[in-house]
Each structure stands twice: as structure tokens, then as C-alpha cells.
């Protein structure tokens, strides 16, 4: 499965990373190298093998339904590039 420029452009868009036309060219090659290499997994017979969901042999711990966190807006917003009136501010979105 080899990928082309259009596919890379599509992936880059899904990942929200701007890629210039020039970068696109070199990225196609790099990604194909890596994908060709991982392709060797297809040799492995995995019929009837369960996919790993966790290396830890335990079940999900659950916490009590208590309010133990939050209530520190200033800390939450402190590192924000733009915060106004207690909100995070981003370029306007049109729905």
C-alpha cells in the first residue's frame, strides 16, 4: 500500500498540519519508506489472535462520584495564548 501526494495532503488535513507543496513531495517518500517497512507485519499469522487492549492485567479502576477538582479558572486559563472574560478565545467559527 503505497501512498501518494493526495493521500498525504488528506492526512495532513486530518491532523491539522499545514504542509507546503514542497514538503509534500519529500513527505510522500519518507512515509512510504516507513510504511513499506512496517508492511512486513502482513507476514505474521494473526488469525484468532486478540488485539492487545492493555499490557496491564487489571480492570479499570473507578472513582467515587464526588466533586474533588475544578474551581480554579485562573489556573486553567493561565497558559492560554488568548483568554477573554473568563473564556478561551479562538478565531471565529461559523457553524
Amino acid at each position: 500500500m503505497s501512498i501518494d501526494k493526495d493521500t498525504v495532503a488528506k492526512i495532513a488535513n486530518l491532523a491539522r498540519i499545514e504542509v507546503s507543496e514542497k514538503e509534500l513531495e519529500s513527505t510522500v517518500g519518507e512515509l512510504n519508506n516507513i510504511l513499506d517497512w512496517v508492511e512486513q507485519l502482513s507476514e505474521v499469522d494473526t488469525d484468532g489472535v486478540e488485539a492487545m487492549t492493555s499490557v496491564v492485567e487489571a480492570s479499570l479502576p473507578r472513582r467515587e462520584d464526588k466533586v474533588t477538582d475544578g474551581g480554579y479558572r485562573d489556573s486553567v486559563l493561565k497558559n492560554a495564548p488568548q483568554a477573554e472574560h473568563g473564556f478561551f478565545a479562538v478565531p471565529k467559527v461559523i457553524e
Binding site: 500500500m1 501512498i3 493521500t7 498525504v8 492526512i11 495532513a12 486530518l14 491532523a15 498540519i17 513527505t27 519518507e30 512515509l31 516507513i34 510504511l35 512496517v38 507485519l41 502482513s42 505474521v44 494473526t46 489472535v49 486478540e50 488485539a51 492487545m52 487492549t53
Partner: peptide, 28 residues
């Protein structure tokens, strides 16, 4: 590079061939 690879192996149509396959090999 890794974000792009990761996005690709999870994307529709490739998930089974890459990600799921890898998690099965991981079990092995």
C-alpha cells in the same frame, strides 16, 4: 512524521491492516 503516520494507520480503510494488525502482533 509520526503524527502523519499515526493518522494514516488509524484512518478509515487502513485501521485493520495497520493498527489492528499491530495490536495483534503485539499480543504475540
Amino acid at each position: 512524521r509520526r503524527i502523519l503516520i499515526g493518522t494514516y494507520v488509524l484512518s478509515a480503510g487502513y485501521y485493520d491492516a495497520y493498527y489492528l494488525k499491530a495490536q495483534k502482533v503485539r499480543t504475540l
